[in-house]
């Protein structure tokens, strides 16, 4: 077990939530005698993250991603299991650990909306005890990287969502943490700014050998940043490995795009080769099972005047969707 990365073993979090039936009578009864239901938000997950790794944490809403991130950052006590971040037990919230981690939540703002971001940065400098000179240097570097010049002097409430998220990100990294927990950092941000934030995270990771655990609904974020992904569903891990492997394992289908020279209206019925996704004149997109792909390709080449043919994996979004739609069959 590495003392510089993240170590998680059999981690479980069970919430006790009050349960009541619909109706006034049940409501009155529940005031006095409350029934509780146990919800296993995280159910025995195990993984290790090496220092410097960027790992994408994928799963539908309610899969247990945020609960796991909160346990890792010391905001929630685990119900059971082992947990270590940089060699510390997060729930103790020791200064040495908190000084070296950061948490960014795309849906919540830590900057004070009434004052300019640059003033909030000054507060973080004091809280983290960053030496003034070092602080100014890092701050100005990050502001330049995020193209926030001028914007950090305006009250945060006057910034656009994208600008605000960039300012949040700078604020969260001023103390140069070694572990970054990023929960949907790019949510609601336009594509250009998403790209800028990705580059920023990449450069930070590269420069500081920082460990990053990222959740995002945007597959573009994951594809650009993460070599490794952990797929979580119903509180358990469905997949842990590289992104390419995820595609190979969960995608039972291939997409064939076949272009032919003009056949003077004598085009054959393409449906005999596979599921037609898109039919254009002299160009057809087919979906076939991975096992049949080689034969279908051979038949196409033999039967038709093919000018071009590509075999592709379906888009990653689609694969993820399939994984979550029928987890039990595929996860076997």
């Amino acid at each position: 077990m590495s003392t510089n990365g993240i170590h998680v073993k059999d981690l479980t979090k069970v919430y006790r939530v009050p349960e009541r039936e619909a109706g006034l009578k049940a409501a009155v009864v529940s005031l006095l005698q409350r029934k509780h239901k146990e919800v296993r938000a995280v159910d025995g997950i195990t993984f290790d993250i090496e220092p410097g790794e960027i790992v994408g944490f994928l799963g539908p809403n309610g899969a247990g991603k945020t609960t796991t991130l909160k346990m890792l950052s010391g905001l929630l006590y685990p119900t059971s299991g082992e947990l270590s971040v940089l060699g510390h037990l997060p729930e103790k919230r020791q200064r040495e650990l908190l000084q070296r981690i950061t948490l960014v939540m795309g849906q919540r703002s830590q900057l004070n909306w009434d004052i300019p971001a640059i003033d909030s940065y000054d507060l973080y400098r004091a809280i983290y005890g960053i030496p003034q000179e070092q602080f100014t240097k890092i701050r100005d570097e990050m502001i330049a990287l995020m193209q926030l010049q001028g914007l950090v002097n305006k009250p945060v409430r006057n910034l656009s969502l994208g600008e605000r998220m960039k300012a949040e990100m700078v604020g969260a990294l001023l103390h140069q943490p070694q572990v970054l927990f990023l929960d949907e950092p790019t949510i609601g941000v336009d594509v250009t700014m998403q790209r800028r934030m990705r580059t920023f995270i990449q450069e930070y990771n590269h420069k500081h050998k920082a460990t990053v655990l990222l959740t995002s609904h945007y597959m573009a974020d994951v594809q650009a940043l993460c070599k490794r992904v952990i797929v979580i569903h119903h509180g358990t891990i469905l997949y842990d490995g590289d992104l390419a492997g995820l595609v190979g394992r969960f995608s039972a289908m291939k997409t064939l795009v076949v272009s032919t020279s003009d056949m003077n209206g004598k085009a054959p019925d393409m449906a005999q080769y596979g599921n037609v996704l898109k039919a254009e004149p002299n160009r057809t997109t087919l979906r076939v099972s991975k096992a049949e792909a080689p034969q279908v390709t051979a038949r196409l080449l033999a039967d038709l005047p093919v000018t071009d043919l590509t075999v592709e994996d379906p888009p990653i979004e689609e694969i993820i969707e399939t994984v979550f739609a029928t987890p039990d069959e595929i996860a076997q």
């Binding site: 010391g74 200064r95 908190l98 948490l103 939540m105 919540r108 830590q110």
Partner: peptide, 18 residues
């Protein structure tokens, strides 16, 4: 109420003081 206390609790400072 709005869940921002999480940011206070992840700071290396006594939360009550903060």
């Amino acid at each position: 109420r709005e869940g921002r206390l999480d940011f206070i609790l992840t700071k290396p400072e006594d939360a009550q003081v903060l």
